[in-house]
Design a protein around this nucleic acid. Sequence first.
RNA 1: GCCUGCAUAGCUCAGUAGGUAGAGCAACUGACUUGUAAUCAGUAGGUCGUUGGUUCGAUUCCGACUGCAGGCUCCA
Length: 647
Amino acid sequence: MSINITFPDGAIKQFDAPITGIEIADSISSGLRRNSVAITVNGEQWDLTREITADATVDIITRDTDAGLEVLRHDAAHVMAEAVKELYPETQVTIGPSIENGFYYDFAREEAFTPEDLIAIEARMKEIVKRNEAIVREVWDRDDAIEYFKGIGEVYKAEIIADLPESETITVYKQGEFLDLCRGPHLPSTGILRDGFKLTKLAGAYWRGDSNNAQLQRIYGTAWSDKKQLKAYLRRMEEAEKRDHRKLGKALDLFHMQDEAPGSVFWHPKGWAVYQAVQQYMGVKQYERGYQEIKTPQVVDISLWEKSGHASKFGDDMFTLSTDDRDYAIKPMNCPCHVQVFNQGLKSYRDLPLRLAEFGSCHRNEMSGALHGIMRVRSFVQDDAHIFCTEDQIQEEVKEFIDFLHEVYADFGFDQIVYKLSTRPEQRVGSDEDWDRAEQALEQALNDNGLEWDLQPGEGAFYGPKIEFSLKDCIGRLWQCGTVQVDFSMPGRLGAEYIAEDGSKQVPVMLHRAILGSLERFLGILIEQHAGALPAWLAPQQAMVATIVTDANDYAQEVLKALRNAGIRAEVDLRNEKIGYKVREHSLQKIPAILCIGKREAEEGTVAVRRFGSKAQTVMPLEEFIEQFQTEIDDKQLSVTEQTSAS
RNA sequence: GCCUGCAUAGCUCAGUAGGUAGAGCAACUGACUUGUAAUCAGUAGGUCGUUGGUUCGAUUCCGACUGCAGGCUCCA
């Protein structure tokens, strides 16, 4: 019997059935056969060795594509599990998927794996690849599968199968002595994995992601189509590490943290200069967009947090104190305080939308394991604002906000933004009708802005759904910064109301929103994004005046004064050192402009400018430099190259 | 909070198979007046995170605690 196989380019070829993916690949070219790892058959991913018995549309998956890498990574996880079972037979295997850049497998074992074990496991994996064991797919009866895995002591596997929907076909893959439940697809044999993998780290992970369950041992690895790709990836990771904000924060003398104040930042003069630049920028932008800035108290009676619902949901994570028989909490967030400001005086529908903003200092007793540099801290400042409005105004306000956020992120040099819509969680306040309307409003706003977004069911705040705006950092980690949340419940709980057009009392809708999120976290991301070399408008020290000879000291002081008068953050280096030494030091500090001053410059009233990232020096009159540099700062130019191309 | 690992000079790191530690840079002193990524010489600097235990003796071995790192969980 012959069947028609349709290829991605529309070509149709006849084959004698049954035929396998590997035979199809071979019929096209030996190169394709060598590089193929799986095949898409009528939209479903199949093993290359699985027989195709009827007409089908196929697409051969090669090892260098995203789908191919996923297959390789999944196989790497299986090979790792096989290696672990060979070396430590008492270990139980659970699940092992492919992930971005690699794979992991979760194991249950009494004894902890050590870093030395990883080396042994990796070596055994290489052996298994060398053995080139055939990987065979088998369809099993559900109960037989459960019995089998129970029989060999793999209770986790048995549990997974028992929980699979009845309709699911139970497939088992066999390689050598190792048998694993898996949907596939997999490589025809272990040898095809080749040597582009490496085990990277050891971690704990809860069974089924629930902290009430047993903790398993997770081994992470990275896997690529070949060794060259692997090496390139490892180099990328090394580069990324150099950008780490904790390293740069120390090297550039921006901030420090110490044992006595875990999760809190000591900002040094230079770091604080950046912090201030960011905050002042936001203040101006908010004013331009119709926000009014306020400031609310740090220590507030616990009763307010009980009314708002925060105490019951986050009580354990709040810093509390009592004095004079009264219980207080250090504010973990600003919203209830903002409602208090709204509640002062009688509000009219004419006052809406009312946009109250605060650089609100908040404290949260985050779990010790959650802390991470200045990205996740216990003491932080939010660029927080709450918009009190009518239901009709939600759409427009959210749309406005998204536009605002895009403008801000672009100014800071971010163009990769990930949008997520988080909907009602299990533990929540407010009626289902309110949640329906709130979720709809946000979804509408995202779609109206033509944005691509992911849904995160159940991830909303306890008082309302939210859109999360995340930025991708240099290591590819996603950091949530901006957010906008629709809240139908808190204003009512805290007694907010306004007089409507018809004279009736109405409860306003409250939009919670932030663009930077936490300033601490945002600065961390900013440092990593720019590898510490902040654009001139954000740099802590924008210009450094460095003298070549002591005779130029007086003129250098004049230059410093002129720069500072022009609003430029400048310093002067009069030390008795060689100019090469000074240039090196200030270049390492990534200062955007170094102005070298020697005898010639002093006589001519010029400066010799050396820009960060360039070895070239340009001698120009002081006034010209100031004018040019000021424009660069005012326009928030992101790089000098942009400046030259723009002018 | 949980799992694994780590904690030595201001910084980056070495070291001690148990006998109280060393380099480079930085700091300080002196000389050098210098033209674009490190001038030379000298000096000083450490309860080896805290705290118990084992030992004649612990920075080193064991335990607890604190902090940090990578994950997991959490993130108003």
